[in-house]
């Protein structure tokens, strides 16, 4: 059962950043709540104040422009992405990863921002954002900075964000529009389930990028490959980048094996 916290729903960005600055460690931002409320219910997280981001003006929707690229806001849900025509047409890899995340009604609430801030090794959005060279725009009362996602994750459930910082926007560069891509996720069942391993692949203008979830403390990007890389070279580069563990759901060896299988299948699919 949940207990013992206050709730605030600021209407402006300024009010929200003031609250975050004043409360620091004691505050938690609430987007879709599909990670936060579960963690609060289990007692793993005990904020004094829950600050809802969803009422802040300008924090919802998705914008696309040839100049700024694709911009996702703090309240943009996974299903907002999937319902967006620009995303489906220009960023098939984003759509593929989004489609594999949780169940339909969870996707109605779960946000892209919440997914990366939660920073689970098995995040399904991280592989797409890594492959697409996306950046996080991070704001606090004292200023704004941008961090590329390949520097965003620092460990299991850890990111570069500080307690008074808001992940305000996720920006996918316009030049990545039109990139071909696909995602393979191994689950225990066909229905919704957290990934045992996930592999995303993107190809664009001779370049090839691969990102892997659930095979290291953070989602991992493998850069520096190109469309003519052999399957053996691709597999070797991915193997070098990952460091899977054995856990409840499967062994380290099985993860290594399935990552390789998925890399090969994706190479076939995106030939």
């Amino acid at each position: 059962m949940l207990s013992g916290f206050n709730y605030a729903a600021p209407r402006t960005r300024g009010e929200l950043l003031d609250l975050l600055a004043a409360e620091g460690q004691g505050a938690k931002l609430l987007a879709g709540g599909t990670d936060l409320l579960v963690n609060m219910r289990s007692g793993a997280v005990k904020p004094r104040l829950v600050i809802d981001v969803k009422r802040v003006e300008g924090f919802s929707g998705i914008e696309w422009s040839a100049k700024d690229g694709l911009v996702m806001k703090a309240s943009t849900t996974i299903n907002d992405l999937l319902r967006d025509r620009e995303v489906r047409e220009r960023f098939p890899l984003l759509a593929a990863c989004a489609h594999d995340l949780a169940s339909y009604q969870v996707r109605n609430r779960a946000t892209v921002v919440g997914n990366v801030v939660n920073a689970s090794p098995c995040s399904d959005m991280a592989p797409a954002l890594l492959c697409l060279g996306a950046r996080a725009r991070i704001s606090s009362k004292t200023g704004t900075r941008e961090v590329p996602f390949k520097e965003f994750f620092t460990g299991v459930k850890r990111t570069v964000l500080k307690a008074d910082e808001l992940l305000e926007l996720i920006i996918v560069p316009a030049e990545e529009g039109g990139a071909r891509g696909s995602y393979r996720k191994l689950k225990r069942i066909n229905g919704h389930d957290l990934g045992i391993v996930g592999v995303a692949m993107m190809k664009k203008g001779g370049l090839m990028r691969i990102a892997v979830s659930s095979a290291a403390p953070t989602p991992v990007l493998v850069d520096g490959l190109n469309e003519t890389s052999t399957p053996e070279a691709a597999v070797a580069a991915v193997r070098k980048a990952i460091s899977p563990i054995s856990d409840l759901r499967c062994s380290k060896e099985y993860r290594e094996h399935m990552v390789e299988v998925f890399v090969r299948r994706l190479l076939e699919e995106l030939k």
Partner: peptide
């Protein structure tokens, strides 16, 4: 207008 898991929504969000 869309389905949600009501166990993961706060009543305080309902305004």
């Amino acid at each position: 207008g869309h389905t949600v898991n009501s166990c993961m929504v706060l009543a305080a969000e309902l305004e």
